[in-house]
Design a protein around this nucleic acid. Structure first.
Lengths: 357, 357
DNA sequence: TTGAAAGCGCTAACAG
DNA sequence: CTGTTAGCGCTTTCAA
């Protein structure tokens, strides 16, 4: 017995899929009973349940979420805006978001902003049409328009969580929950590590991506700490393009431009740092002997090269897990999501440890 | 004049956001006119448009997509199921999907299946509740349940595209559009390259992920071609876990187990191959002198190590671009999406070229 | 434990 | 160019 296509019995506008009504007819009950069965089976008599169950697989019925959400007034979509879904640094966070939401009854709507605040705002505007139940955005820098949208959502009870950031001096308070770590402090840790190794002439290689504010902040923290300790410090910006190549070119610069004075370099991510390490090895610069290098992110390759790349391990997956946790908690309790600090961990390997190379 | 919260005038159930009705009232027209203005502004008189425009920003109105889709009967969601959104090999494809859909009026609903067919089926079941306008799935291996769901969608006019595959002998015809390349043929190319370099004792290191069928198929193609040419060939499976480490361990095996006879090894991806290359260098095995290595995927790191890693470059971004193209074309024309072959490119670097190391 | 009535916010179809 | 009417498929009261 198939759903008929041609001259149909009950004239319908929508696509021909079975509806609650069809199931109800087949089971000899009304729509509401079927609806109830779908959401709270225990409120339906056992015998009725059986009939409905049979009717459901007979018709091949699937609940239409859109209709349900329209009627109930709350969507089951969690929107997450990530600078670059595929980038090594965010991959695990995204994975954790998906993992955490799986089975919660909420669906993850994942958006790549391409590290562009304008793009983020556009996406947000498109998203609000979906009336997401919660927003997860990356970082605390947004256009005025984005802040307005998120603020409106937040003040009408929609959880808004900013991930991958958590400045200690939350002077700037948009009131959104922040889940992550202090990037200035991360930069400071990097500087401290190099200083502790006896370096007094430092450099920070910033991300070539203009809107990677978090990398810039790490640089600021790095420079501030270096100066505080009386060391010299240079900040250079990596070229755009392949990160390994960028790292290589930066190293060339350091060598050719007579910046040999620099002995300790921190990079805004491990790929840059590893590119520099490879370049150093090929041009016979000893690491860490002549030059100590460290990265950020603890990407797999950093552990593989010799000497291993010292780095800061950010709580990549934890950020995702915690964000979902907060969102779900907030959704369930009605209270706003709260901020959580998740610190980085310093991973020391051969690229900064004199004893090792 | 704010939307009131307390004892409201028009008793409403939904969340307090403004609706078409509010805008219509404010503009002194009916809802349908506003609706029309939102979708086909050119059908509305200039003067009326002005009034509506004013009413819209006065009320802060946003179109509710869910309601619209329910009423019109067609969703604007394109669902894409990818084994691992963050994995290097898929990152560009995902990026291209997002890019291509941006501005098309469709939203990308991105799902990671974790390389599990069961998981894929679960996700599909959850997804159909959203009535996606199109499905993009990875590969041509799915559970019977998934095939059933996709088949039903397809035969009711919903485009279904399988990406990252395109077997030449499409004996198996689910009828879905296939966008990608023939993995057996890719494996064959890899074997041919090693054979052409004079190797007669080959090995293929298969992915440790059981459900990475495409990697297995490349191995089959590789082995078949090797045998055809009279070479010996072994297939081993990489351990799971960090891919670089897995590659290292596989290389250790080759050396310790007296499998020294093997002189040419192809890996199911570049990370495995690069791990092996690093391990070889550290244990003073000459590449390509004693052992030629090649990978698959052309990941950035393969270009950076010395000697460079020979590999097969799959049309990562092209697959995504083309998939979106086909989906949109199909959606617009009503015809089913069609298959497209997008071949891989052989990238020869030092790891297989005797003259270079 | 089940049902009736009303409506979520928007749009198709046809008039005018 | 604009309005009327009648839903899309489901869920929320509230009553039986």
């Amino acid at each position: 017995m198939k759903v008929d296509q041609g001259p149909s019995p009950r004239q319908r506008r929508g696509h021909g899929r079975p509806t609650l009504h069809d199931v109800a007819d087949a089971a000899g009950v009304t729509r509401i009973t079927v609806s109830r069965f779908m959401r709270s089976p225990h409120l339906v008599a056992a015998e009725t349940s059986e009939r409905i169950k049979a009717a459901i697989d007979q018709t091949g019925y699937v609940l239409n979420l859109q209709a349900g959400q329209l009627a109930s007034g709350n969507s089951h979509i969690v929107a997450a805006l990530i600078p670059n879904v595929g980038h090594s640094i965010f991959a695990e966070t995204v994975q954790a978001l998906a993992e955490g939401l799986h089975g919660s009854g909420y669906e993850l709507l994942l958006i790549s902003t391409g590290y562009s605040m304008e793009r983020e705002e556009q996406q947000l505007r498109a998203l609000i049409g979906w009336a997401p139940a919660a927003f997860i955005v990356t970082g605390r820098h947004h256009t005025a328009g984005s802040r307005h949208i998120l603020g409106a959502a937040s003040s009408s009870g929609t959880p808004v969580v900013e991930i991958w950031d958590h400045p200690k001096n939350a002077a700037h308070g948009d009131g959104f929950a922040l889940i992550g770590f202090d990037h200035r402090h991360a930069g400071k840790s990097m500087a401290q590590h190099l200083l502790a190794q006896g370096h007094t002439s430092l450099a920070y290689v910033d991300s070539g991506v203009a809107e990677d504010f978090r990398a810039h902040e790490r640089g600021e923290g790095f420079a501030a700490e270096a100066r505080r300790a009386g060391a010299s410090v240079k900040i250079v910006r990596a070229p755009t393009g392949d990160a390994f190549d960028a790292g290589r070119r930066v190293l060339e610069q350091f060598v050719s431009k007579g910046r040999k004075a620099v002995t300790g370099v921190a990079f805004s991510n491990d790929h840059l740092a590893c590119g520099a390490l490879l370049q150093a090895q090929e041009t016979h610069i000893e690491v860490p002997g002549q030059l100590a290098l460290m990265g950020f992110g603890d990407f797999p390759i950093g552990r593989q090269l010799r000497p291993g790349m010292s780095t800061l391990l950010p709580p990549r997956a934890d950020i995702g897990r915690t964000a979902v946790e907060e969102v779900l908690r907030s959704l369930a309790s009605g209270n706003a999501a709260s901020s959580r600090e998740l610190p980085c961990e310093l991973i020391v390997r051969g690229s900064t440890l004199k004893g090792s190379s």
